[in-house]
Design a protein around this nucleic acid. Structure first.
Lengths: 247, 247
DNA sequence: CTGTGTCGGTGTTCTAGAACTCCGCGCGAA
DNA sequence: TTCGCGCGGAGTTCTAGAACACCGACACAG
Protein backbone atom coordinates (compact mmCIF):
# COMPACT_ATOMS: atom_id res chain seq x y z
CA UNK A 1 0.00 0.00 0.00
CA UNK A 2 2.98 2.13 -0.08
CA UNK A 3 1.93 5.32 -1.81
CA UNK A 4 4.67 6.97 -3.76
CA UNK A 5 2.18 9.60 -4.76
CA UNK A 6 0.26 11.19 -1.93
CA UNK A 7 -3.13 9.87 -1.12
CA UNK A 8 -4.85 13.13 -1.89
CA UNK A 9 -3.39 13.16 -5.35
CA UNK A 10 -4.93 9.78 -6.03
CA UNK A 11 -8.24 10.97 -4.72
CA UNK A 12 -8.12 14.04 -6.90
CA UNK A 13 -7.27 11.91 -9.88
CA UNK A 14 -10.15 9.60 -9.21
CA UNK A 15 -12.56 12.52 -9.08
CA UNK A 16 -10.98 14.09 -12.12
CA UNK A 17 -11.63 10.91 -14.03
CA UNK A 18 -15.23 10.83 -12.96
CA UNK A 19 -15.66 14.35 -14.20
CA UNK A 20 -13.84 13.96 -17.48
CA UNK A 21 -15.42 10.59 -18.02
CA UNK A 22 -18.79 12.27 -17.99
CA UNK A 23 -20.04 10.41 -14.97
CA UNK A 24 -20.27 13.76 -13.24
CA UNK A 25 -21.84 16.46 -15.35
CA UNK A 26 -21.19 20.17 -14.90
CA UNK A 27 -23.43 21.57 -12.23
CA UNK A 28 -23.83 18.31 -10.36
CA UNK A 29 -23.34 18.47 -6.66
CA UNK A 30 -20.82 16.07 -5.22
CA UNK A 31 -21.43 14.16 -2.05
CA UNK A 32 -20.67 16.17 1.02
CA UNK A 33 -17.11 16.22 2.20
CA UNK A 34 -17.62 13.96 5.16
CA UNK A 35 -19.26 11.30 3.02
CA UNK A 36 -16.57 11.58 0.39
CA UNK A 37 -13.89 11.31 3.02
CA UNK A 38 -15.46 8.19 4.41
CA UNK A 39 -15.94 6.64 0.98
CA UNK A 40 -12.27 7.17 0.21
CA UNK A 41 -11.33 5.91 3.64
CA UNK A 42 -9.57 9.10 4.54
CA UNK A 43 -9.78 12.01 6.91
CA UNK A 44 -11.72 15.14 6.17
CA UNK A 45 -8.52 17.17 6.01
CA UNK A 46 -7.01 14.86 3.49
CA UNK A 47 -10.05 14.89 1.30
CA UNK A 48 -10.10 18.64 1.41
CA UNK A 49 -6.57 18.75 0.08
CA UNK A 50 -7.78 16.80 -2.92
CA UNK A 51 -10.67 19.17 -3.45
CA UNK A 52 -8.33 22.09 -3.23
CA UNK A 53 -6.30 20.69 -6.09
CA UNK A 54 -9.38 20.29 -8.22
CA UNK A 55 -10.57 23.75 -7.39
CA UNK A 56 -7.28 25.22 -8.48
CA UNK A 57 -7.70 23.39 -11.75
CA UNK A 58 -11.11 24.94 -12.08
CA UNK A 59 -12.78 21.56 -12.17
CA UNK A 60 -14.99 22.09 -9.16
CA UNK A 61 -16.40 25.01 -7.21
CA UNK A 62 -17.00 24.85 -3.48
CA UNK A 63 -19.73 26.98 -2.00
CA UNK A 64 -19.85 27.44 1.70
CA UNK A 65 -23.03 26.06 3.18
CA UNK A 66 -24.21 24.76 -0.15
CA UNK A 67 -21.96 22.05 -1.41
CA UNK A 68 -19.30 21.21 -3.94
CA UNK A 69 -20.20 21.39 -7.60
CA UNK A 70 -18.69 20.31 -10.85
CA UNK A 71 -17.64 23.48 -12.63
CA UNK A 72 -18.54 24.49 -16.13
CA UNK A 73 -15.86 23.40 -18.57
CA UNK A 74 -13.18 26.02 -18.81
CA UNK A 75 -12.80 28.37 -21.70
CA UNK A 76 -9.27 27.40 -22.46
CA UNK A 77 -10.17 24.83 -25.02
CA UNK A 78 -11.34 27.23 -27.65
CA UNK A 79 -9.15 30.19 -27.31
CA UNK A 80 -5.93 28.41 -28.03
CA UNK A 81 -5.47 30.00 -31.37
CA UNK A 82 -2.18 31.33 -30.18
CA UNK A 83 -0.48 28.71 -32.16
CA UNK A 84 1.98 31.02 -33.79
CA UNK A 85 4.27 30.93 -30.90
CA UNK A 86 7.78 29.71 -30.48
CA UNK A 87 7.51 27.09 -33.11
CA UNK A 88 4.96 26.77 -35.82
CA UNK A 89 6.06 29.54 -37.93
CA UNK A 90 5.78 27.04 -40.71
CA UNK A 91 2.06 27.58 -40.54
CA UNK A 92 2.77 31.06 -41.79
CA UNK A 93 4.42 29.73 -44.91
CA UNK A 94 7.95 30.56 -43.91
CA UNK A 95 10.77 28.18 -44.57
CA UNK A 96 11.85 26.90 -41.20
CA UNK A 97 14.91 24.77 -40.60
CA UNK A 98 16.43 23.43 -37.45
CA UNK A 99 20.09 23.02 -36.71
CA UNK A 100 21.14 20.76 -33.89
CA UNK A 101 23.95 22.45 -32.02
CA UNK A 102 24.55 19.82 -29.40
CA UNK A 103 23.14 16.96 -27.43
CA UNK A 104 24.50 15.18 -24.41
CA UNK A 105 23.68 13.64 -21.09
CA UNK A 106 24.12 16.11 -18.30
CA UNK A 107 23.25 16.71 -14.70
CA UNK A 108 20.13 18.72 -14.10
CA UNK A 109 20.75 22.00 -12.39
CA UNK A 110 18.29 23.36 -9.91
CA UNK A 111 16.03 25.12 -12.36
CA UNK A 112 15.75 22.07 -14.56
CA UNK A 113 15.17 19.52 -11.85
CA UNK A 114 12.56 21.77 -10.32
CA UNK A 115 10.67 22.09 -13.56
CA UNK A 116 10.80 18.38 -14.27
CA UNK A 117 10.13 17.29 -10.74
CA UNK A 118 13.33 15.27 -10.58
CA UNK A 119 15.72 14.86 -7.70
CA UNK A 120 18.55 17.34 -7.73
CA UNK A 121 21.44 16.53 -10.01
CA UNK A 122 19.50 13.84 -11.83
CA UNK A 123 20.69 12.82 -15.26
CA UNK A 124 18.86 14.40 -18.13
CA UNK A 125 19.37 14.54 -21.87
CA UNK A 126 20.18 18.05 -22.94
CA UNK A 127 19.66 19.35 -26.47
CA UNK A 128 20.44 22.65 -28.04
CA UNK A 129 18.81 23.65 -31.26
CA UNK A 130 18.80 26.71 -33.43
CA UNK A 131 15.72 27.57 -35.45
CA UNK A 132 16.21 29.42 -38.67
CA UNK A 133 13.58 31.15 -40.73
CA UNK A 134 14.57 31.62 -44.33
CA UNK A 135 18.11 30.91 -43.27
CA UNK A 136 18.25 33.53 -40.53
CA UNK A 137 18.51 32.54 -36.87
CA UNK A 138 15.23 33.02 -35.14
CA UNK A 139 15.34 31.26 -31.81
CA UNK A 140 17.68 29.29 -29.64
CA UNK A 141 16.11 26.40 -27.83
CA UNK A 142 17.56 24.36 -25.00
CA UNK A 143 15.59 21.26 -24.12
CA UNK A 144 15.95 18.93 -21.19
CA UNK A 145 14.39 15.47 -21.28
CA UNK A 146 13.42 13.70 -18.13
CA UNK A 147 13.49 10.43 -20.03
CA UNK A 148 16.40 8.09 -19.48
CA UNK A 149 17.44 7.49 -23.07
CA UNK A 150 20.68 7.35 -24.95
CA UNK A 151 21.35 10.59 -26.70
CA UNK A 152 22.35 8.98 -29.95
CA UNK A 153 18.75 8.14 -30.72
CA UNK A 154 17.91 11.77 -30.51
CA UNK A 155 20.88 13.19 -32.29
CA UNK A 156 20.02 11.18 -35.35
CA UNK A 157 16.82 12.78 -36.52
CA UNK A 158 16.44 16.05 -34.79
CA UNK A 159 17.58 18.12 -37.70
CA UNK A 160 14.49 17.16 -39.60
CA UNK A 161 11.98 15.63 -37.20
CA UNK A 162 10.24 17.56 -34.45
CA UNK A 163 11.13 16.41 -30.98
CA UNK A 164 7.53 15.59 -30.23
CA UNK A 165 7.45 13.10 -33.05
CA UNK A 166 10.68 11.47 -32.00
CA UNK A 167 9.32 11.08 -28.52
CA UNK A 168 6.08 9.65 -29.77
CA UNK A 169 7.34 7.21 -32.37
CA UNK A 170 10.68 6.17 -31.01
CA UNK A 171 9.82 6.13 -27.35
CA UNK A 172 6.05 5.91 -27.23
CA UNK A 173 5.76 9.08 -25.19
CA UNK A 174 3.05 11.52 -26.10
CA UNK A 175 2.85 15.10 -24.98
CA UNK A 176 -0.59 16.10 -23.99
CA UNK A 177 -0.29 19.36 -22.18
CA UNK A 178 2.23 22.07 -21.60
CA UNK A 179 2.61 25.17 -19.52
CA UNK A 180 4.53 28.05 -20.88
CA UNK A 181 5.73 31.18 -19.27
CA UNK A 182 7.25 34.10 -21.13
CA UNK A 183 9.31 36.94 -19.79
CA UNK A 184 11.39 39.74 -21.23
CA UNK A 185 15.11 39.50 -20.62
CA UNK A 186 18.44 40.74 -21.83
CA UNK A 187 20.23 38.31 -24.07
CA UNK A 188 23.30 36.62 -22.58
CA UNK A 189 26.64 36.47 -24.34
CA UNK A 190 26.42 32.85 -25.38
CA UNK A 191 22.88 33.09 -26.61
CA UNK A 192 23.63 36.28 -28.49
CA UNK A 193 26.55 34.67 -30.28
CA UNK A 194 24.48 31.73 -31.47
CA UNK A 195 21.70 33.99 -32.60
CA UNK A 196 23.99 36.39 -34.35
CA UNK A 197 23.16 39.50 -32.45
CA UNK A 198 24.77 41.68 -29.83
CA UNK A 199 24.76 40.68 -26.17
CA UNK A 200 22.27 42.61 -24.09
CA UNK A 201 19.61 43.14 -26.70
CA UNK A 202 16.07 42.64 -25.41
CA UNK A 203 14.58 39.23 -26.02
CA UNK A 204 11.79 36.93 -25.06
CA UNK A 205 12.59 34.03 -22.86
CA UNK A 206 10.02 31.29 -22.84
CA UNK A 207 10.11 28.48 -20.34
CA UNK A 208 7.91 25.55 -21.12
CA UNK A 209 7.19 22.32 -19.32
CA UNK A 210 5.45 19.59 -21.32
CA UNK A 211 3.50 16.81 -19.66
CA UNK A 212 2.51 13.33 -20.76
CA UNK A 213 -1.05 12.05 -20.33
CA UNK A 214 -0.40 10.90 -16.79
CA UNK A 215 0.61 14.41 -15.86
CA UNK A 216 4.28 13.61 -15.46
CA UNK A 217 6.64 16.31 -16.75
CA UNK A 218 8.67 15.10 -19.71
CA UNK A 219 10.43 18.01 -21.33
CA UNK A 220 11.62 21.36 -20.12
CA UNK A 221 12.39 23.94 -22.78
CA UNK A 222 14.01 27.32 -22.62
CA UNK A 223 13.67 29.36 -25.75
CA UNK A 224 15.35 32.67 -26.48
CA UNK A 225 14.02 34.92 -29.20
CA UNK A 226 15.44 38.36 -29.94
CA UNK A 227 12.76 40.98 -29.53
CA UNK A 228 13.20 42.48 -32.95
CA UNK A 229 12.38 39.24 -34.70
CA UNK A 230 9.24 38.27 -33.02
CA UNK A 231 5.86 39.33 -31.76
CA UNK A 232 3.11 37.62 -29.91
CA UNK A 233 -0.26 38.43 -31.33
CA UNK A 234 -3.65 37.60 -30.06
CA UNK A 235 -7.27 38.33 -30.58
CA UNK A 236 -9.55 39.23 -27.70
CA UNK A 237 -13.29 39.08 -27.49
CA UNK A 238 -15.22 40.82 -24.79
CA UNK A 239 -18.57 39.68 -23.61
CA UNK A 240 -21.10 42.32 -22.88
CA UNK A 241 -20.99 43.74 -19.39
CA UNK A 242 -19.33 41.62 -16.81
CA UNK A 243 -19.61 38.02 -16.03
CA UNK A 244 -19.68 37.68 -12.30
CA UNK A 245 -17.21 34.88 -12.11
CA UNK A 246 -15.79 34.63 -8.68
CA UNK A 247 -12.21 35.14 -9.63
CA UNK B 1 -10.32 40.53 19.01
CA UNK B 2 -12.65 37.90 17.97
CA UNK B 3 -11.38 36.21 14.87
CA UNK B 4 -13.87 36.89 12.14
CA UNK B 5 -11.07 36.33 9.71
CA UNK B 6 -9.37 32.97 9.99
CA UNK B 7 -6.20 32.69 11.88
CA UNK B 8 -4.19 31.59 8.88
CA UNK B 9 -5.27 34.69 7.00
CA UNK B 10 -3.91 36.83 9.74
CA UNK B 11 -0.69 34.92 9.72
CA UNK B 12 -0.40 35.26 5.97
CA UNK B 13 -1.05 38.96 6.25
CA UNK B 14 1.58 39.34 8.87
CA UNK B 15 4.14 37.62 6.71
CA UNK B 16 3.02 39.56 3.66
CA UNK B 17 3.64 42.76 5.54
CA UNK B 18 7.10 41.66 6.53
CA UNK B 19 7.89 40.93 2.91
CA UNK B 20 6.42 44.06 1.42
CA UNK B 21 7.80 46.13 4.21
CA UNK B 22 11.25 45.07 3.16
CA UNK B 23 12.04 43.31 6.41
CA UNK B 24 12.31 40.12 4.43
CA UNK B 25 14.25 40.51 1.21
CA UNK B 26 13.78 38.28 -1.83
CA UNK B 27 15.85 35.16 -1.49
CA UNK B 28 15.85 35.14 2.29
CA UNK B 29 14.96 31.89 3.92
CA UNK B 30 12.15 32.01 6.43
CA UNK B 31 12.31 30.18 9.73
CA UNK B 32 11.37 26.57 9.37
CA UNK B 33 7.71 25.75 9.52
CA UNK B 34 7.74 24.27 12.99
CA UNK B 35 9.45 27.32 14.40
CA UNK B 36 7.06 29.67 12.61
CA UNK B 37 4.10 27.69 13.84
CA UNK B 38 5.32 27.94 17.38
CA UNK B 39 6.06 31.65 17.09
CA UNK B 40 2.54 32.30 15.87
CA UNK B 41 1.17 30.02 18.54
CA UNK B 42 -0.47 27.78 16.02
CA UNK B 43 -0.34 24.25 14.68
CA UNK B 44 1.86 23.18 11.84
CA UNK B 45 -1.17 22.50 9.65
CA UNK B 46 -2.54 25.95 10.26
CA UNK B 47 0.70 27.62 9.50
CA UNK B 48 0.96 25.64 6.30
CA UNK B 49 -2.38 26.98 5.17
CA UNK B 50 -0.98 30.46 5.52
CA UNK B 51 2.09 29.53 3.53
CA UNK B 52 -0.09 28.02 0.84
CA UNK B 53 -1.86 31.32 0.43
CA UNK B 54 1.40 33.15 0.08
CA UNK B 55 2.71 30.63 -2.39
CA UNK B 56 -0.33 31.01 -4.57
CA UNK B 57 0.32 34.72 -4.53
CA UNK B 58 3.86 34.03 -5.64
CA UNK B 59 5.27 35.71 -2.61
CA UNK B 60 7.19 32.73 -1.33
CA UNK B 61 8.58 29.52 -2.73
CA UNK B 62 8.70 26.36 -0.68
CA UNK B 63 11.41 23.86 -1.51
CA UNK B 64 11.11 20.42 -0.10
CA UNK B 65 14.01 19.58 2.14
CA UNK B 66 15.48 23.05 1.85
CA UNK B 67 13.25 25.67 3.29
CA UNK B 68 10.83 28.42 2.48
CA UNK B 69 12.14 31.43 0.60
CA UNK B 70 10.91 34.88 -0.24
CA UNK B 71 10.27 34.91 -3.98
CA UNK B 72 11.51 37.45 -6.46
CA UNK B 73 8.72 39.87 -7.24
CA UNK B 74 7.11 38.97 -10.51
CA UNK B 75 3.53 39.10 -11.53
CA UNK B 76 1.98 36.27 -13.40
CA UNK B 77 -0.27 37.16 -16.18
CA UNK B 78 -2.48 34.64 -17.80
CA UNK B 79 -2.65 35.58 -21.41
CA UNK B 80 -6.00 33.95 -21.76
CA UNK B 81 -7.57 36.23 -19.23
CA UNK B 82 -6.17 39.54 -20.15
CA UNK B 83 -9.31 41.47 -19.60
CA UNK B 84 -9.21 40.65 -15.94
CA UNK B 85 -5.81 42.09 -15.52
CA UNK B 86 -6.51 44.39 -12.65
CA UNK B 87 -8.99 41.98 -11.17
CA UNK B 88 -6.53 39.14 -11.20
CA UNK B 89 -3.94 41.10 -9.42
CA UNK B 90 -6.29 42.22 -6.73
CA UNK B 91 -7.42 38.63 -6.39
CA UNK B 92 -3.83 37.83 -5.62
CA UNK B 93 -4.05 40.21 -2.76
CA UNK B 94 -2.23 43.00 -4.50
CA UNK B 95 -3.43 46.52 -4.34
CA UNK B 96 -3.73 47.97 -7.80
CA UNK B 97 -4.08 51.67 -8.39
CA UNK B 98 -4.04 53.82 -11.46
CA UNK B 99 -2.54 57.26 -11.69
CA UNK B 100 -3.51 59.52 -14.53
CA UNK B 101 -0.38 61.26 -15.71
CA UNK B 102 -1.90 63.33 -18.43
CA UNK B 103 -4.72 63.73 -20.88
CA UNK B 104 -5.02 66.09 -23.82
CA UNK B 105 -6.12 66.45 -27.37
CA UNK B 106 -3.25 65.86 -29.73
CA UNK B 107 -2.46 65.22 -33.34
CA UNK B 108 -2.11 61.58 -34.24
CA UNK B 109 1.32 60.59 -35.42
CA UNK B 110 1.85 58.07 -38.14
CA UNK B 111 1.73 54.98 -36.02
CA UNK B 112 -1.43 56.05 -34.25
CA UNK B 113 -3.35 57.17 -37.28
CA UNK B 114 -2.42 53.95 -39.05
CA UNK B 115 -3.66 51.83 -36.21
CA UNK B 116 -6.90 53.75 -35.88
CA UNK B 117 -7.49 54.11 -39.59
CA UNK B 118 -7.61 57.89 -39.41
CA UNK B 119 -6.21 60.45 -41.75
CA UNK B 120 -2.72 61.60 -40.86
CA UNK B 121 -2.51 64.24 -38.16
CA UNK B 122 -6.11 63.75 -37.14
CA UNK B 123 -7.11 64.95 -33.71
CA UNK B 124 -7.19 62.27 -31.03
CA UNK B 125 -7.54 62.23 -27.27
CA UNK B 126 -4.33 61.06 -25.69
CA UNK B 127 -4.12 59.64 -22.20
CA UNK B 128 -1.18 58.50 -20.18
CA UNK B 129 -1.70 56.29 -17.18
CA UNK B 130 0.58 54.59 -14.71
CA UNK B 131 -0.50 51.36 -13.07
CA UNK B 132 0.84 50.68 -9.64
CA UNK B 133 0.82 47.44 -7.75
CA UNK B 134 1.20 47.94 -4.04
CA UNK B 135 2.41 51.40 -4.74
CA UNK B 136 5.15 50.32 -7.13
CA UNK B 137 4.92 51.24 -10.80
CA UNK B 138 4.00 48.26 -12.89
CA UNK B 139 3.09 49.47 -16.32
CA UNK B 140 2.89 52.64 -18.33
CA UNK B 141 -0.03 52.90 -20.69
CA UNK B 142 -0.57 55.42 -23.44
CA UNK B 143 -4.00 55.39 -24.98
CA UNK B 144 -5.27 57.17 -28.06
CA UNK B 145 -8.99 57.56 -28.63
CA UNK B 146 -10.42 57.94 -32.09
CA UNK B 147 -13.56 59.43 -30.58
CA UNK B 148 -14.14 63.14 -30.94
CA UNK B 149 -14.83 64.02 -27.35
CA UNK B 150 -13.77 66.65 -24.94
CA UNK B 151 -11.02 65.39 -22.75
CA UNK B 152 -12.47 66.78 -19.56
CA UNK B 153 -15.07 64.04 -19.48
CA UNK B 154 -12.35 61.48 -19.41
CA UNK B 155 -9.99 63.16 -17.05
CA UNK B 156 -12.62 63.13 -14.38
CA UNK B 157 -12.90 59.46 -13.52
CA UNK B 158 -9.96 57.68 -14.94
CA UNK B 159 -8.15 57.38 -11.67
CA UNK B 160 -10.78 54.98 -10.45
CA UNK B 161 -12.86 53.80 -13.40
CA UNK B 162 -11.57 51.58 -16.17
CA UNK B 163 -11.49 53.26 -19.55
CA UNK B 164 -13.82 50.67 -21.00
CA UNK B 165 -16.48 51.56 -18.49
CA UNK B 166 -16.14 55.25 -19.12
CA UNK B 167 -16.54 54.63 -22.83
CA UNK B 168 -19.54 52.46 -22.28
CA UNK B 169 -21.50 54.46 -19.76
CA UNK B 170 -20.56 58.02 -20.59
CA UNK B 171 -20.37 57.68 -24.34
CA UNK B 172 -22.34 54.58 -25.15
CA UNK B 173 -19.42 52.99 -26.93
CA UNK B 174 -18.78 49.32 -26.26
CA UNK B 175 -15.58 47.50 -27.04
CA UNK B 176 -16.24 44.13 -28.51
CA UNK B 177 -12.97 42.94 -29.88
CA UNK B 178 -9.33 43.80 -29.68
CA UNK B 179 -6.13 42.80 -31.29
CA UNK B 180 -2.98 42.81 -29.26
CA UNK B 181 0.59 42.36 -30.22
CA UNK B 182 3.43 42.02 -27.76
CA UNK B 183 7.11 42.45 -28.43
CA UNK B 184 10.28 42.70 -26.39
CA UNK B 185 11.97 46.07 -26.43
CA UNK B 186 14.44 48.21 -24.62
CA UNK B 187 12.85 50.79 -22.40
CA UNK B 188 13.15 54.37 -23.58
CA UNK B 189 14.33 57.21 -21.40
CA UNK B 190 10.95 58.77 -20.79
CA UNK B 191 9.22 55.47 -20.10
CA UNK B 192 12.00 54.37 -17.79
CA UNK B 193 11.72 57.54 -15.78
CA UNK B 194 8.00 57.15 -15.24
CA UNK B 195 8.40 53.51 -14.32
CA UNK B 196 11.27 54.15 -11.99
CA UNK B 197 13.88 52.01 -13.65
CA UNK B 198 16.97 52.49 -15.75
CA UNK B 199 16.71 53.30 -19.45
CA UNK B 200 17.53 50.33 -21.64
CA UNK B 201 16.24 47.55 -19.44
CA UNK B 202 14.31 44.86 -21.30
CA UNK B 203 10.56 45.27 -21.28
CA UNK B 204 7.39 44.11 -22.92
CA UNK B 205 5.67 46.47 -25.26
CA UNK B 206 2.09 45.67 -26.01
CA UNK B 207 0.20 47.39 -28.77
CA UNK B 208 -3.50 46.95 -28.78
CA UNK B 209 -6.28 48.15 -31.02
CA UNK B 210 -9.82 47.85 -29.70
CA UNK B 211 -12.84 47.75 -31.97
CA UNK B 212 -16.50 48.55 -31.45
CA UNK B 213 -19.26 46.22 -32.64
CA UNK B 214 -19.28 47.72 -36.12
CA UNK B 215 -15.61 46.90 -36.49
CA UNK B 216 -14.43 50.47 -36.30
CA UNK B 217 -11.21 51.00 -34.33
CA UNK B 218 -11.82 53.03 -31.21
CA UNK B 219 -8.75 52.91 -29.00
CA UNK B 220 -5.09 52.34 -29.60
CA UNK B 221 -3.02 51.43 -26.55
CA UNK B 222 0.68 51.10 -26.03
CA UNK B 223 1.70 49.51 -22.78
CA UNK B 224 5.21 49.21 -21.40
CA UNK B 225 6.04 46.72 -18.70
CA UNK B 226 9.55 46.13 -17.37
CA UNK B 227 10.58 42.52 -17.90
CA UNK B 228 11.50 41.84 -14.31
CA UNK B 229 8.04 42.63 -13.05
CA UNK B 230 6.01 40.59 -15.34
CA UNK B 231 5.52 37.30 -17.02
CA UNK B 232 3.03 35.87 -19.45
CA UNK B 233 1.84 32.37 -18.78
CA UNK B 234 -0.33 30.09 -20.75
CA UNK B 235 -1.56 26.56 -20.85
CA UNK B 236 -1.45 24.47 -24.00
CA UNK B 237 -3.40 21.38 -24.84
CA UNK B 238 -2.38 19.09 -27.63
CA UNK B 239 -4.75 16.80 -29.38
CA UNK B 240 -3.58 13.26 -29.77
CA UNK B 241 -1.24 12.51 -32.66
CA UNK B 242 -1.60 15.92 -34.18
CA UNK B 243 1.18 17.92 -35.71
CA UNK B 244 0.97 20.55 -33.07
CA UNK B 245 3.57 23.04 -32.07
CA UNK B 246 7.12 22.07 -32.62
CA UNK B 247 8.79 21.22 -29.43
C1' DC C 1 -48.04 39.71 3.54
C1' DT C 2 -43.72 40.22 5.78
C1' DG C 3 -40.39 39.68 8.84
C1' DT C 4 -37.60 36.80 12.00
C1' DG C 5 -36.01 32.70 14.19
C1' DT C 6 -34.43 28.28 14.35
C1' DC C 7 -32.72 24.00 12.21
C1' DG C 8 -30.36 20.63 9.38
C1' DG C 9 -26.93 20.13 6.07
C1' DT C 10 -22.50 21.50 4.28
C1' DG C 11 -18.17 23.69 3.93
C1' DT C 12 -14.25 25.80 7.02
C1' DT C 13 -10.97 26.37 10.49
C1' DC C 14 -8.08 24.38 14.00
C1' DT C 15 -5.54 21.13 17.34
C1' DA C 16 -1.62 17.93 18.62
C1' DG C 17 0.86 15.04 17.19
C1' DA C 18 3.40 10.95 14.18
C1' DA C 19 5.65 9.22 10.29
C1' DC C 20 7.58 10.08 5.83
C1' DT C 21 10.28 12.16 1.91
C1' DC C 22 13.60 15.13 -0.08
C1' DC C 23 17.68 18.07 -0.04
C1' DG C 24 22.58 19.46 0.41
C1' DC C 25 26.78 18.09 2.30
C1' DG C 26 30.60 15.48 3.49
C1' DC C 27 33.06 11.11 3.84
C1' DG C 28 35.07 7.44 1.78
C1' DA C 29 35.68 4.20 -2.30
C1' DA C 30 36.64 3.44 -7.29
C1' DT D 1 37.85 13.32 -10.25
C1' DT D 2 33.70 11.08 -9.87
C1' DC D 3 30.49 8.36 -7.79
C1' DG D 4 27.71 6.28 -3.95
C1' DC D 5 26.02 6.40 0.65
C1' DG D 6 24.46 8.20 4.95
C1' DC D 7 23.35 12.03 8.12
C1' DG D 8 20.63 15.89 9.92
C1' DG D 9 17.55 19.55 8.78
C1' DA D 10 13.29 21.02 6.50
C1' DG D 11 9.10 20.49 4.03
C1' DT D 12 5.00 17.01 3.34
C1' DT D 13 1.37 13.91 4.18
C1' DC D 14 -2.00 12.04 7.31
C1' DT D 15 -5.00 10.93 11.49
C1' DA D 16 -9.24 11.62 14.55
C1' DG D 17 -11.71 14.48 16.08
C1' DA D 18 -14.11 19.31 17.73
C1' DA D 19 -16.01 23.67 17.09
C1' DC D 20 -17.45 27.23 13.97
C1' DA D 21 -19.76 29.70 9.88
C1' DC D 22 -22.83 29.90 6.14
C1' DC D 23 -26.98 28.79 3.37
C1' DG D 24 -31.73 27.52 2.19
C1' DA D 25 -36.11 26.41 4.04
C1' DC D 26 -39.86 26.30 6.97
C1' DA D 27 -42.74 27.78 10.70
C1' DC D 28 -44.40 31.15 13.60
C1' DA D 29 -45.38 35.95 14.89
C1' DG D 30 -46.54 40.61 13.69
Amino acid sequence: MNARVPRYHRIAESLRDRIHGGRLMPGTRLDNQRALAKSFGVTLMTLRQALELLERENLIARRHGLGTFVAAPSIDYDILQLRRFAGDLSAQGEHVTTRLLGGRVARADRRVSDALGLPARARVVQLERLRLVDGHPMSLQRSFLAVPVGEEVLKADLGTTPLRQVLEFKLGITIERARESVSAVRLGRREARELGCRPGVPAFESERVSYDPTGAPVVFDRVFIPGDRFRITRELHYEHSERGATS
